[in-house]
Design a protein around this nucleic acid. Structure first.
Lengths: 338, 338
DNA sequence: GTGAAAGCGCTAACAC
DNA sequence: GTGTTAGCGCTTTCAC
């Protein structure tokens, strides 16, 4: 069957300890011995059994990434970066999908698979601050992503939502727009991205001395292209005058973009549009979409640094950390001044 | 520390064997005993150590999904379905990215992580039939996805590429187009999606009695929005007359769509366009994109069935299988007859 | 510098 | 029906 460390030891005429030493780069091994072992490994095509190693060491080299779903390009691109970054550190990534459902998130967090990973990157959508107790009880190292849970019992990394949204709105104001729709507010969401981005929108208006018009606050339940399109359609039907749109993510923006263009509105001349996330696809729409780049690379880099610090115990006594990444406003055709 | 089966046994006042029996749904246990064990498990919040179980049983409950990358919406959506389907069977999914590079694919296939999974779904892009020997040597159950490797030593699932492409082309012919661009041919690719889809294109032309014009075969190296846009721009510069485009995937189609519209061409009136893959985003472009739905659900369902059959040994002696899924042509605005 | 042996937590053959 | 025990393949303490 598949060779074990004993087979290697026998072939190299050493003990299994020596084989183990070679594999783990133990320093004091005679070069000749090491070479014999390496040759034996190669000739048997030996691969260490990771379950056995995991049992012994308590480490599996696996981290879990829990996200709502991969159909959402934001999370797909996030997962892409996580997988790359993790692999660079010799870690593999298990992807689990919650569909944004609280029940599903809970069962993933307490499920047996948690036993198998050294750490978890968790992008919560259903859980909230009320679940902090449960979160605190989880032993597996964990870093929270996103804004559902702030000031929780775990390390947390996300973007500067308020400032990002403020910058997006200010950008539209800067190119002369005054009747700006906030597309994506969601009263049901409580604290979370929607609330924070709405806050940034308001700050920008206030700063520019523009009075907020409730007619321009458009709810979008679930941030997809379809819901963005539906909400925009309903908004257009109301006949409210507007000249700019801050969409709270790119998917909404794309759905709205299509509906506005169908309705004969010209973007950016009639309506300037800016999104959030900078997913890849918005570079090639017509017009291309201005957006806020949330600094995904930085999010992943910091999150993984926090996580590995917890995993190897070097940050064991550090209280929960909070990191806010810097964003970038990316101007494209959808907000080009006339 | 974390409780073990011994702690549970002590608390429930039974032996570890009984605890193990309860967990594995062994039939002959007195209900009262079973309940005591279950209570003990609950009160200790006991979770079986999966490394130990994996060491003992030789099974980890993990499958690996090797794809080029998650930035590509086709693979992100495929991964989404794989994760869902695997979870429904109690399996977890490890995602690894190859970037389509042969070297990276090879190192993933022989790397230590293979030791940790019960099976592999492998969407090859760099490997080819020349690597069949290597593939044959791999013990881990494996199913190949896509068309890089046909008639290989492993089970294989993909769509009917030739027929799909033929249908797409025939559809354009059916709405009166005669000068149809094949966007995505790639002579370097040898056998593979590009060659098969080109073959389908040719069949449809032949069937309709349209002579092939080499000027209408446009290479696209790497099937992204950007390369689709670049290739279309170069093609437009050549001033060749055309009235239809069969793009070999949706990303190419979207890049080309933008460039054509920038150039003042109207889709579908001037040029009808059809893509391949039916990724989610093409529903909300303007115009929405007609495309070939490759039957991803079926691909995943069959692939996972093949894989689990190999994993549990029930199909151990079955020779490599080949399954071609049925596709669907989805007509949207980009090919609406005038 | 290398070997012998214990033990990580679990499953399953075998005993009772 | 339930308990005892060996052993999966590895790392690691302790000898030598």
């Amino acid at each position: 069957m598949t060779p074990t460390i004993h087979d290697v030891a026998r072939l190299a005429e050493v003990s299994i300890k020596t084989v183990s030493n070679v594999m783990n780069d133990y320093p004091h091994i005679r070069p000749a011995t090491r070479q014999r072992v390496l040759d034996a490994i190669a000739s048997l095509d030996y691969k260490p059994n990771l379950s056995a190693r995991g049992l012994r060491s308590g480490k599996t080299g696996l981290v879990s990434l829990i996200i709502p779903d991969l159909r959402n390009p934001y999370f797909a691109e996030l997962a892409d970066i996580v997988v790359r970054a993790a692999e660079a550190q010799g870690l593999s990534v298990m992807v689990a999908q919650s569909n944004g459902q609280r029940e599903r998130e809970l069962s993933l967090l307490v499920g047996p698979r948690m036993q198998m990973v050294d750490g978890v990157l968790f992008s919560a959508l259903g859980l909230s601050a009320e679940d902090n107790d449960l979160l605190a009880r989880i032993r597996t190292p964990m870093v929270l992503l996103g804004e559902r849970i702030l000031d929780g019992p775990k390390d947390h990394v996300t973007m500067r939502n308020v400032e990002g949204s403020e910058a997006a709105t200010a950008h539209l104001i800067g190119i002369g727009r005054r009747r700006i729709v906030a597309l994506g507010s969601d009263p049901a969401q409580g604290l979370g991205s929607a609330a924070l981005r709405l806050e940034g929108y308001r700050r920008a208006l206030r700063h520019a001395g523009i009075e907020e018009d409730p007619d321009l606050l458009v709810d979008v339940i679930g941030w997809y292209r379809r819901t963005g399109a539906d909400s925009m359609r309903a908004f257009l039907d109301r006949g409210v005058d507007f000249d700019g749109v801050v969409a709270f993510n790119d998917q909404i923006a794309l759905g709205a973009l299509r509906v506005m263009q169908e309705a004969g509105l010209h973007v950016p001349d009639d309506v300037a549009v800016i999104g959030f996330d900078d997913v890849d696809e918005v570079r090639y729409t017509l017009p291309s979409l201005s957006t806020i780049d949330p600094g995904r690379e930085e999010i992943v880099e910091v999150a993984l640094r926090y996580l590995t610090g917890r995993m190897d115990g070097s940050d064991a006594d550090v209280p929960p950390r909070d990191h806010l990444t810097s964003f970038r406003l990316i101007q494209r055709e959808s907000t080009t001044p006339a």
